[in-house]
Design a protein around this nucleic acid. Sequence first.
DNA 1: ATGCCCGCTGTGAGCAGGCTGAGAAGCACT
DNA 2: AGTGCTTCTCAGCCTGCTCACAGCGGGCAT
Lengths: 226, 226
Amino acid sequence: MRVLVVEDERRLAAAVKRGLEAGGFVVDLAHDGVTGLHLATEGGYDSVVLDIMLPGLSGYRVCQQLRAAENWVPVLVLSAKDGEYDQADALDLGADDYLTKPFSYVVLAARLRALMRRGAVPRPAVLRSGDLTLDPSSREVRRGTQPVALTAREFALLEFLMRRAGSVVSKADLLSHVWDAGDDITDLNIVEVYVGYLRKKIDGPFGRRALQTVRGAGYRLATDGG
Amino acid sequence: MRVLVVEDERRLAAAVKRGLEAGGFVVDLAHDGVTGLHLATEGGYDSVVLDIMLPGLSGYRVCQQLRAAENWVPVLVLSAKDGEYDQADALDLGADDYLTKPFSYVVLAARLRALMRRGAVPRPAVLRSGDLTLDPSSREVRRGTQPVALTAREFALLEFLMRRAGSVVSKADLLSHVWDAGDDITDLNIVEVYVGYLRKKIDGPFGRRALQTVRGAGYRLATDGG
DNA sequence: ATGCCCGCTGTGAGCAGGCTGAGAAGCACT
DNA sequence: AGTGCTTCTCAGCCTGCTCACAGCGGGCAT
């Protein structure tokens, strides 16, 4: 099993290499994002371990570009514990698993094996929940074949919910991810307002309820689109 | 397998030649764009390695002219790591792969082999969206059979949009790709102005809207030409 | 049954994003 | 120098998005 490890801190990289080799992997190293991306695109790896903080091209970008090039090699992202990014962001960008530093090589190896067992699973470029589809690149949303016109904010909200379809997302989460965290907006009502707008547009006038309220917890987008 | 390497820096060119010959390729060198273009047009190569920064005729122009002459030999473009151009530009102009310096000869050789395995893939010489056509080599644009006269800037803008027809392109992207990145132009209004010019020319006076505004995101050229 | 939250929605102000007309500056060609 | 075209800046306008607010209603606990 060949693994590519992309990590700029040389000592850590070497340690990971040794750790994984001890676990029976064949390991190649890259010390910056650009090299990493090229080696990964080159193909031939069964999985890629990707640091987020990289000089030049960040791990996120690497992952994003890999997926954009339709390369579905399993990617495990490493991040510093106190990083500004979180798991959700990494998974959104097409990573398959996530580990915060410091971590144990045993755990890393085990997760890699799990990923590889699953193999390279293509993720469609378009999000789908039942007959509701959202294409991030063209910014088009359809209910069945019927196009749905959304404003920028509504679109961002729906995209976020669809990426987490099936799980409950709290209003605070939505506020911080869809409304640019760090702003001094704290009134959660705005989320309720936009959920209302969205419902009007994606659930027909009758009864459908793709976007469910989970009282006291948040909202959940039905995986079957309502 | 015969490869033409076009690279003005003699030492690097010689090194690449040695590296590829070690990998079993037969290598010819050209040290400037004009010679490179002649040798490549001459034919007989299974692939071409093309530096971007070349005296006289840039690698981009060489590639463009090759394709305009319906020569579909696989082209791999080399660029300096900090170059102002990016992968997308190279691929847009008809290159088949892209590598930033510094690179390893092993990787270069592997990629060339992959390219040759794929062989020469003709790309349509003319871009089309519905009844809107744009021919990059003759610089002609037609709506149906009706020719449309565009200025240089309008043409560049339309070409860029047509290469990404169906996806939303942000104004910032347009600004950096159509208006020569690196300039200190930051006022996005110029994009709006040119979109206006373009619409006047490619959408008739009535209702057509090939070039859609996606508020808060950018513009999208309809794949069916409006 | 009652009261209290929590969530929903109608209203309207403010404003950002996008469009356009006018015109200045630059360039090519005569 | 004159003409015509292209490129770009600027300011004003308009649309409709975004958001705060306040009142309403339904569910839940007591």
